[in-house]
């Protein structure tokens, strides 16, 4: 139980974790992540990988929408740039995975910055429409530029692309480590970013863009930087997905994906790094849970098989409305509330 937190240096004050409770929770979490693949079956491993991938993408989108306040409906398309970028680099240029992943992420960052240019003039709903254009243009390019992307046919990556130093990186367990490493790095990078100069400038743009400009923040530069940084991580998710699955198709990266990710960060918590992760976990686990429960009833209610997708969508919708109404600040806020309730428990008065 903590009576108060007393810092004696500014470094201590800037730390992410102040109390032994917080540090203990981190150790527990890391321990869980390390032990998990040894006890989990393949199904749970796939779910964990999905969560990791979604978390990277959600953090990316949160950098742009939650922290910098620029709504983006182009998430799916940017992810496609990362995935197809990695796939094409692997197949056409014969690049190995360790090269395609950073290269494809950087490519996405560039594309994101270009589609971020309208944000200098447009805000809110208007910007949302402009990013929707990005989504449509990129979707169209992928399905129609057949010579490069394979069009509506799925793009299958060369198997040799996943070989690093003679070791083939394949399978759920191997990718579990890769995805978790990237997810951890993304989390740490983003958390650091928002306790230093550039990240603060992003948030300043969200809160009051005119004041931000008047204290010397170059709006043009920083908005593009936010688009690029965000798209980098979104592209990273795409590139990792491409190598993990070994096959990519345009259907994974439609406007639906964009909206799914928006829902993720709204449920998790806009402007919260940990919230992005909670949102990602939520969005992967809830449908899985509903599907499993639905299967239980399949024997008793035969119509379940057809109804299941609709029930899934319906519950999803209800959950999103629930969060918007009850807890607009998302899962991150709920978790904060729980922590602050138990901080002095059982003597809180």
């Amino acid at each position: 139980m903590e009576c108060g937190i007393f810092h004696t240096t500014y470094q201590q004050d800037m730390a992410f974790r102040h109390t032994w409770m917080e540090k203990a929770r981190l150790v527990l979490l890391l321990g869980f992540i390390i032990i998990f693949p040894f006890v989990a079956n393949r199904y749970w491993l796939t779910l964990a990988n999905q969560i990791g991938l979604a978390a990277i993408g959600a953090i990316g989108l949160n950098i742009l929408t939650g922290f910098t306040g620029q709504i983006s409906l182009g998430q799916g398309a940017f992810m496609a740039v990362g995935a197809y970028g990695a796939g094409i680099m692997a197949n056409r240029l014969g690049w190995p995975i360790w090269l395609t992943i950073p290269a494809a992420s950087l490519l996405t960052a560039g594309v994101g910055a270009i589609f971020g240019i309208p944000s200098l003039r447009l805000k809110g709903l208007y910007l949302a429409i402009a990013t929707l254009a990005a989504q449509q243009i990129i979707d169209w390019l992928i399905t129609h530029w057949t010579s490069l992307t394979g069009g509506v046919e799925a793009l299958v990556l060369r198997r040799e692309a996943n070989v690093v130093l003679g070791v083939a990186l394949r399978g759920d367990r191997t990718f579990y480590w890769i995805i978790m490493a990237f997810a951890a790095a993304t989390t740490l990078f983003t958390a650091n970013l928002f306790r230093t100069r550039v990240g603060r400038a992003f948030v300043a743009i969200r809160d009051q863009d005119i004041a931000a400009e008047v204290i010397g923040i170059n709006l043009f530069l920083y908005k593009l930087l936010a688009f690029a940084t965000s798209s980098f991580f979104v592209g990273l998710t795409g590139a990792l997905t491409a190598h993990y699955r070994g096959i990519i198709s345009w259907e994974r990266f439609t406007i639906e994906t964009s909206i799914l990710y928006l829902a993720m960060i709204i449920i998790g918590g806009l402007g919260s790094v940990s919230g992005s992760i909670y949102g990602a976990a939520f969005m992967v686990l809830v449908p899985a849970f509903i599907t499993n429960v639905g299967r239980q009833f399949q024997t008793t209610i035969p119509a379940m098989a057809q109804l299941l997708p609709f029930i899934q969508q319906g519950i999803f919708g209800i959950v999103i409305i629930f969060f918007l109404v009850i807890e607009p600040e998302g899962l991150a806020k709920i978790w904060r509330d729980i922590k602050s309730y138990f901080a002095l428990w059982p003597f809180s008065y």
Binding site: N192, L193, T196, R197, V198, G199, T229
Partner: peptide
């Protein structure tokens, strides 16, 4: 201040 995107992210 000088800290850029990368150095800030690495802290």
């Amino acid at each position: 201040m000088r800290t850029g995107l990368l150095s800030g992210g690495l802290f």
